[in-house]
């Protein structure tokens, strides 16, 4: 019994290390662009999907965040480089406008800095 527990425990540790700490691909989404603007819908549930958003430079962009998660961790989305701190009431779509005049990478994070996402303007 104890030997089995020990083996199961060690397997669990290995799994946790691999699952959380190993390298995994994040979901990427290209913005839907039309001539006047581009939008991306981002679902907020246990993190962000997609976690990486690619925007076209020079086209006004809107990210539509919709929070479906009750965790208070995720109740704000913060773009520290852009000075954006947007409250995300649960179940509502909140628009975040991104200035795409300059190419670059802008990180976003939850209010406790545990979940992250990234906007790439190019």
């Amino acid at each position: 019994m104890k030997v089995i527990t020990l083996i199961v425990g060690i397997i669990a540790i290995a799994f946790i290390a691999w699952w959380f700490l190993g390298k995994h691909d994040a979901s990427v989404e290209q913005a839907k662009v039309n001539s006047t603007n581009q939008t991306v819908n981002i679902q907020v549930k246990g993190g962000y999907s997609p976690e990486k958003v690619v925007l076209k430079k020079g086209v006004p962009a809107t990210l539509n965040f919709k929070r479906l998660d009750s965790s208070s961790c995720l109740d704000h989305v913060i773009f520290s480089d852009l000075g954006i701190n947007q409250e995300l009431p649960k179940g509502q779509v909140e628009q975040v406008k991104i200035d795409t005049s300059k190419a670059g990478e802008y990180d976003w994070e939850c209010s406790m800095n545990m979940f992250h996402g990234k906007v790439i303007v190019k």
């Binding site: 959380f20 549930k45 009750s70 961790c73």
Partner: peptide, 19 residues
């Protein structure tokens, strides 16, 4: 319930947090 569901969706994305 919400802790569990949040933790599960985070888990699927290889994330973890306080929940």
């Amino acid at each position: 319930g919400p802790f569990v569901s949040s933790a599960w969706s985070a888990f699927l994305k290889h994330h973890s947090n306080m929940d």
